[in-house]
Simulated assay, not measured.
Amino acid sequence: MTAHIAGLGWVTPLGTDLVDVFARIGRGELAEVKAIANPETGRALSYLPVPMKSVEALGRNPRLRRASAISYFGVAAGRAALADAGIVMTPELAARTAVVFAISNGGVIYTRKFFDQIVKQGAHAASPALFPDTVYNAPASHLAALLGIDGASYTLVGDASVGLSALHFSAQLLATSDIEQVVVVGAEECDWILCAAYTDWRLARTPLAEGAAAVVLRRAGRWRVQTHPGATFLRQREAGAALAGVLGDFAGAKVERVIASANGTFIDRAEAAGLAMHFPNVPVLAPKQSLGESPGAGALMQTVVAALTGGCALATVVGFNQQTGAALITPTR
Rank of each mutant, 00 (worst) to 15 (best):
R202T: 09
V215E: 13
A196T: 14
P207R: 00
A209L: 05
V184C: 14
A197P: 00
P207H: 08
A187S: 14
A209T: 05
A214H: 14
E189A: 08
V183R: 09
A187N: 01
R205K: 15
G211I: 05
E210A: 10
D178A: 15
Q181K: 06
D191I: 04
S177Y: 06
W192Y: 11
D191K: 01
Q181C: 10
S177C: 07
L203H: 06
R205L: 13
G211R: 02
T199W: 09
L194V: 01
V182Y: 07
T176Q: 15
G186N: 05
I179C: 08
L208C: 12
R202L: 15
V185N: 00
E210N: 10
V216G: 13
A197Y: 13
R205W: 09
A209C: 06
L194T: 08
T176N: 13
V183S: 08
R202G: 01
A175V: 03
A175L: 10
V184P: 05
D191T: 03
D191P: 01
S177N: 10
A175K: 06
A197E: 14
A213D: 09
V185W: 04
E188C: 00
I179D: 06
V182L: 08
A214D: 12
E210V: 06
L203G: 13
P207K: 04
V215Y: 12
V182G: 04
E189V: 02
A209F: 00
C190G: 08
I193V: 13
